[in-house]
Amino acid sequence: MHIVVCIKQVPDSAQIRVHPVTNTIMRQGVPTIINPYDLFALEEALRLRDRLGGTVTVLTMGPPMAEDSLRKALGIGADRGVLLTDRFFAGSDTLATSYALSQAILKIGETWGVPEVVFTGKQTIDGDTAQVGPGIARRLGLQQLTYVSGISEVDLAGKSITVSRRAEGGVQELKTALPALITMLEGSNEVRRGSIVDVLRGARAELVTWNAQAAGITEMGNCGLRGSPTVVKRVFAPKARATKAVPIETRERDAETIAEDIIAQLYATQPALEAELLRTAAGY
């Protein structure tokens, strides 16, 4: 079977700093990583391939340096990497991103066989919208399976797939037809470490690099800023709270005294609270 996994290279946001004066992100020296949620998608794709045979193609849209993320994915075990890169894609919102990626997936299908499953992560840590997966599914007319926590059955001959999906208040078991788009829930598998062979292969592999034209994109108006209905008008830092925290004295006091002080201050701020707590407690 052929599986496509969409991965995004993102700044390691644990290390992001905001410039205190200009309110811009200080990107210098911030390492980039594969969006952590996408690794669960990659792992699930590799498991399907290992079980059923076939190949895994990883696809990323980004600046030329995003090829690092493809090499890392090959190092973990993917078979082929496609980098979609073009200045026309700059400034894409989720609608434009899903357009470019879906066109590239069509091209991947023409070139190496139509994928039965397209995976994305649950969401990215920089965009954090969880919209690109559903966007791709709609644009390609794929069955949309979001927040999937496990794949219990794939029937390639019968073209069907059965998955568990995190829903509100429980887990849905869904059966649908292939091809399907799956957004994988985090923590639903344990991401493997690549073998030395794969890591070396990833470092040396020939990647496929497509610009818009090579990916068969002709509607440039659907790409980048022009293809993005949303407009960012303002970027600003969160406001600090106006009043400072009231300190509760702790020095040279034992824990009991501190506790009593906390409760007294809390009840003073929320006069109705004591009665409510008593009512709740009485209800037990």
Partner: peptide, 9 residues
């Protein structure tokens, strides 16, 4: 960016 900034869209 992980809540470090807010943006109006």
């Amino acid at each position: 960016f992980g809540g470090s900034l807010l943006c109006t869209i």
